[in-house]
Simulated assay, not measured.
Amino acid sequence: MAAEQHTRDNGVKRRHRQEGPQKHVMIFVLSAVLTLIAFAAVAAGDVNPVFAVILLLVMALIQVFVQMGFWMHLKDKGHMMPIIFMLGGFLIAGTCIIMALYWVWWD
């Protein structure tokens, strides 16, 4: 891994680890494999529809965490506020979806 040295005021050198391109390639391949698994489940045709929907939802959830963690760098320090705002947005959107479904199916 590539390392960069930083000097503090007291003269102590510390190393700062950087992500190399190999990690980005690995995450890209993981994203492509997850997409291929989801595509294969739908393209197979003879797969149970309930299983296919559950598999698609699980693959989508994994994709969301991979995308936000690595491509949006939310796994790094100092990103707590964007995470909190995203979770708040998901909570509000989920509440609106549940309310809309409840309203549509109200007898």
Rank of each mutant, 00 (worst) to 15 (best):
A2F: 11
E4N: 00
E4L: 07
Q5G: 09
Q5I: 15
N10P: 03
G11K: 03
V12N: 09
K13M: 13
R15C: 05
R15Q: 13
K23Q: 13
H24W: 00
H24I: 11
V25W: 10
M26T: 09
V29Q: 06
V33Y: 09
L34R: 03
T35L: 15
F39S: 10
F39M: 13
A40I: 06
A41P: 00
G45V: 02
G45D: 06
D46Y: 00
V50G: 09
F51E: 13
V53H: 05
I54K: 10
L55Q: 04
L55K: 05
L57D: 06
A60P: 00
V64S: 07
V64C: 08
V64A: 12
F65G: 11
F65H: 12
V66P: 00
V66L: 13
Q67E: 15
Q67K: 07
M72F: 15
M72W: 14
L74I: 03
K75D: 03
D76P: 01
D76G: 03
K77A: 15
K77Q: 14
H79P: 02
P82L: 00
P82T: 02
I84K: 09
M86E: 01
M86V: 02
L87S: 10
A93S: 11
A93D: 00
G94H: 03
G94Q: 03
I98F: 12
